[in-house]
């Protein structure tokens, strides 16, 4: 285990150190101390590292991540794991808005609440939230899964494409073209896998599935009011 003190190294120092490690490095486990809410910690990583950030982070932590497992032992700011490609970003506390925005792949776990616009424009990322998500979550979600063990705020899945949304609690309202859908065997299997990966105790049978009614894909004058 290696330690990186953000106070000493600065954000650029830490990121360039982690980004330039050789792919086959033996120094895989890194602990970042004194994050002090700074932005863009451990972004753009490309390799199977294990990063533990001891404290609360600012915006964009773990953004663009590829393969690394990043654990935030605290609160995460805006845009956590935005545009993640693969790997895992795990938030032990709550997260601010736009968590997992535009994520292509990998798994984002938020043990607490996730605020608004969680999974906005998601493109293949899996997101599991232990608590609630705020309004406009999964807005224009294209691919991937958003699992919410608590409640969802207003306009869930507005203008959604093919992302799959699973909510255990109440949904304040569904966005345009987002509807409740049938839970088939493949969805239950998917959900089981995701809940297990996020170390959740909830059962798939407790969730409802939401997704696209596919009526806004192409312009139709009959739906003009819905745009």
């Amino acid at each position: 285990m290696n330690e990186l003190d953000l106070k000493k190294e600065g954000i650029r120092g830490i990121n360039s150190k982690l980004q330039t490690l050789p792919k086959n490095t033996n120094e895989k486990h890194w602990v970042v101390t004194n994050p002090m809410g700074q932005h863009s910690i451990a972004v753009g990583l490309d390799g199977p590292l294990q990063i533990d950030i001891k404290g609360h982070v600012g915006f964009y932590c773990g953004g663009m991540n590829k393969e690394s497992e990043i654990t935030i032992h605290g609160h995460a700011g805006v845009g956590t794991a935005e545009n993640m490609m693969s790997g895992i970003v795990w938030v032990k506390g709550n997260s601010s808005e736009s968590a997992g925005a535009t994520g292509n792949g990998g798994l984002l776990v938020i043990d607490g609440d996730a605020s608004s616009r969680c999974g906005i424009s998601m493109k293949g990322i899996d997101i599991v939230v232990g608590g609630n998500v705020g309004h406009m979550s999964a807005f224009m979600g294209q691919r991937g899964n958003l699992v919410v063990c608590g409640d969802a705020g207003d306009a869930l899945g507005d203008s959604i494409y093919e992302a799959r949304l699973y909510v255990k609690g109440k949904v304040a309202s569904l966005g345009a073209d987002c509807i409740e859908k049938e839970m088939r065997a493949e969805h239950i299997a998917d959900l089981e896998r995701l809940l297990k990966a996020a170390k959740r105790k909830e059962k798939p049978s407790e969730f409802k599935r939401y997704g696209s009614a596919r009526k806004l894909y192409n312009f139709s004058v009959d739906h003009a009011d819905a745009y």
Binding site: H39, V57, G74
Partner: peptide, 20 residues
């Protein structure tokens, strides 16, 4: 932003959330 709060004594153990 949280980084403004990070300087306060005990901030690391504080309950932190985004207001709705």
């Amino acid at each position: 932003e949280y980084r403004a709060i990070a300087h306060l004594p005990g901030a690391d153990k504080a309950k932190i959330w985004e207001p709705e």
